[in-house]
Amino acid sequence: MNQFAYHQQQMQAPMPMSYQHDGKSAETRNLKPGELSTGTTIMAIPFEGGVVLGADSRTSTGTYIANRVSDKLAQLHDHIWCCRSGSAADTQALTDYVRHYLSQLAIETGRAPTVKTAAHLMRRLCYENKDNLMAGVIIGGWDPVEKGSVYNIPLGGTCIKMPFAIGGSGSTYIYGLVDSMYSEGMTEEEAHTCVKKAISHAMARDGSSGGVIRTVVVKESGNAREYVPGNALPFGP
């Protein structure tokens, strides 16, 4: 045995003749049979004094669209919202838990919880149950400490504060587009337009994103929901 023994052993291992594809997309591969997936496009952009969150509305079981007008934006507290992607069941359960914890905390402290706290609670649930979950969420909202802020919690349960966030299967198609459209210190109007435009483009390319666009603008003064019908998407130059 010389010092290269390990390498030699590796090289002797038989190489696979061809890669076996299971016929499933990356989004649906980890789902249980019959589980609903929000093969999704979600995003959030903060602006001075608030944040805009947006999502498409497609929920699918494999190739079948189980719901074409679903709502992937969930309210966690007065000024804290969440975009869900991954398993519909898992993300619904997670948001229910976080909503419950936040309402308890608000009562104990006597003040509105921060977006950071909401993201931290979600991260704990996602990280500690990572083996049993398929959930990637974006949390955004307004609080007196950070004003508008966005936190991304992808599959493994990391929690990162971001200048903006995109997620879901459709997001891969629009990284370049959003990078070119985003700039620091966008106005509410600019951020809202950017979200609708980017999600339209993702919906056009991604087979598991589609339907309508749902958005919410979160500000200290309140939340404004809006939707863009599927025949009026701001697609194209």
């Binding site: 402290t109 921060t114 950071k116 706290t117 931290h120």
Partner: peptide, 14 residues
């Protein structure tokens, strides 16, 4: 550990 922020004074006292 749970909430990611420092405990508010009132909560600590209570």
């Amino acid at each position: 550990e749970t909430y990611g922020t420092k405990i508010p004074s009132k909560v600590l006292g209570e």
